[in-house]
Design a protein around this nucleic acid. Structure first.
Length: 566
RNA sequence: GACUCGGUAGCUCAGCAGGAUAGAGCAACGGCCUUCUAAGCCGUCGGUCGGGGGUUCGAAUCCCUUCCGAGUCGCCA
């Protein structure tokens, strides 16, 4: 709501001032850093410069224009401080409007994404590798972006583009056939397959020729070798079983699990089209698309004729365009693949398709260990499952300490633990690299998931015992600073969701929820809610119920679990 | 070496379509539970916004340069 007021103020002032000065005027309308200066402020320096008139004169003119504005009734005070015009809301008018609108804020249907489809490619783990804390980022960032866009009215297609193809399978199959132990693999599939993968790379250091063997095996797999195919299918199946367990824990779901292998029979069409359009060029035995000076060429086909990652991604992209007719396609994939997606876009552009503009790489920072990228090849990975268990266990210890009589302790502690891990990842801007730090991940104090859940639970325990009528409210009670902070924050919810979507960054929502929770906890410390005065109680219960609605919906959008007691 | 991203309080991070004294959390220290969940609240301490130039009435924010860290740079994904 504040955004709406700001933009209306801005456009009205621009029209008015442009006609006064007979030239185009740009007006800046912002919120001051500190609230004691007011709620909205207008710095006039740029106008002074544009019209070349004395500052005080310009301020007079702007204030006059302001007084004629449609939104002037929202304000109670207008102060001039140097080159700033500071406006203070009429808290009563503002609070009424916000509370009336907020009653249905969480059930509100947004129109922004109406009739628009977005495909989101996320999680996409590589088969035969454990689900690591690295995969977690893509999974929960993608999931949260999907939720937020759905809330804004988009039709969201969630795609888990499994990494179930590629030379790595040549490596694993080679290792399995040469030094694998069937019984061990059957017993503990992923763990053993990773061991084989790591062993392969150790061996390859001394005998690099096995890399060629692996490539050969992959080529034959691609061509349909039945023995290899059977192994591949088996590896895929056992891996997927493992991943489904993790998805269940995280409460993440997908509309499609079509991985890279799904496109095996759809790549020739891409190669043909590239050839037909004269974009393919033979270079050092491989087929490439030249992308000019500022980008390395895209390798479409290896010299042995087998395909590469980008070939499969192109096939997948066209398949998605044809199948879902998306307006946007998002790839939630790490920073290190930036070049790959730039190349993908460039190739699509060269092919003459405008929708290259709708391809967005939602990049995110790496999970580092000792300042370096984690590497499966060197066996340096942390399993997500272990981290989730650690967090849940710690959460249980908290409950036993603070609320030992709680029912369903295990269930609740798992919800707290998993949500803590999720929130810890989402609270920071996605492109930042993060150093793996278990202690941070399972921290339950301060700006954390449990803090949000705890805040919601506090509200719940008050609401549970009380009926209230949201029509019988005394808006005068919202005049105090600690109440009005909450009113203003509630008023920001919609624009926060839009900002989170525009920046494809769940952290915007995460930070907002922390802010809301923090204001609530201040309020809670200062005010008694279950007071005897009926109207006052009613007013406070209405307010905190709105806060809980937003907190709960916000947490759900982030992929966290909402609980009632803890 | 080239390119990309980052460097803000001891630690983790906000702020960056330029705007008024740079904000949170953690840690440290000091308060607050006979009253709605203290996983909370209040206060204190803590910053040459990596360094140096420049543009501007005004720079953490824009430009240049330099240092540091990470990532990527043709037959992995």
């Amino acid at each position: 709501m504040i955004d709406k007021i700001k933009s209306r103020l801005r456009s009205e002032l621009e029209v008015k001032l442009s006609s006064v000065y007979n030239q185009e005027i740009n007006v800046v309308v912002e919120e001051p850093k500190t609230t004691n200066l007011g709620d909205i402020s207008i710095p006039v320096f740029s106008i002074v410069k544009a019209v070349n008139k004395p500052l005080s004169e310009v301020v007079d003119v702007v204030i006059e224009a302001l007084e004629q504005s449609q939104v002037y009734e929202w304000f109670k005070e207008v102060n001039r401080v140097g080159g700033f015009i500071n406006l203070t809301f009429d808290r009563l008018v503002f609070a009424k409007e916000v509370i009336n609108e907020a009653a249905n804020v969480t059930s509100f249907k947004y129109e922004i994404g109406k009739d628009k489809t977005v495909c989101i490619d996320y999680s996409s783990p590589n088969i035969a590798k454990p689900f690591s804390v690295g995969h977690l980022r893509s999974t929960i960032i993608g999931h949260a972006i999907g939720n937020i866009m759905e809330k804004l009215g988009y039709k969201v297609v969630r795609i888990n583009h499994l990494g179930d193809f590629g030379t790595q399978f040549g490596k694993i199959i080679y290792a399995y056939l040469n030094f694998g132990d069937r019984a061990k693999v059957d017993e503990n599939p992923i763990e053993e397959l990773v061991k084989l993968y790591v062993e392969f790379h150790e061996l390859a250091k001394e005998s690099p020729e096995i890399e060629d063997k692996a490539r050969e095996i992959f080529k034959e797999l691609e061509l349909g070798n039945p023995e290899y195919n059977k192994l591949w299918e088996h590896f895929r199946e056992v891996s997927l079983e493992e991943y489904m367990k993790v998805y269940k824990m995280l409460d993440v779901h997908f509309d499609s699990y079509n991985g890279e292998a799904f496109y095996n029979d759809k790549m020739q069409a891409v190669v043909d089209e590239l050839t037909l359009k004269g974009l393919l060029k033979k270079d050092e035995g491989a087929m490439i698309v030249d992308l000019g000076e500022d980008m390395p060429p895209a390798l479409i086909q290896k010299s042995d004729g087998s395909t590469l990652y980008i070939t499969r991604d192109l096939a997948a992209l066209f398949y998605r365009k044809n199948t879902y007719d998306f307006d946007e396609v998002l790839y939630v994939v790490g920073n290190e693949q930036k070049l790959h997606f730039e190349q993908l876009k460039a190739v699509v552009k060269k092919m003459g398709y405008d929708f290259y503009q709708d391809i967005h790489h939602i990049n995110f920072g790496l999970v580092l260990q000792d300042g370096k990228k984690m590497s499966t090849r060197k066996g340096k990975i942390v399993k997500l499952e272990d981290v989730l268990k650690e967090a849940s266990g710690l959460s249980l210890a908290y409950i036993n300490d603070k609320n030992p009589d709680l029912a369903n302790k295990e269930e609740v502690s798992e919800k707290i633990g998993v949500s803590a891990i999720i929130f810890n990842d989402l609270k920071n801007y996605r492109t930042n690299d993060v150093e793996f730090n278990l202690e941070d991940m399972v921290n339950f104090v301060g700006q954390t998931g449990p803090y949000l859940q705890y805040t919601s639970v506090r509200i719940s325990s008050v609401l549970e015992e009380n009926e209230y009528d949201d029509k019988k409210i005394d808006f005068e009670l919202f005049m105090t600073d600690h109440s009005f902070d909450l009113i203003k924050t509630i008023a920001q919810y919609e624009e926060i969701l839009i900002k989170a979507k525009n920046e494809y960054s769940p952290s915007v929502l995460a930070k907002y929820l922390l802010n809301l929770a923090s204001y609530f906890n201040t309020f809670y410390a200062k005010e008694k809610i279950m007071v005897s005065d009926k109207i006052e109680r009613n007013t406070k219960l209405t307010l905190i119920s709105i806060i809980r609605n937003i907190l709960d919906e916000g947490m759900k959008l982030l992929g966290m679990q909402v609980i009632r007691r803890m």
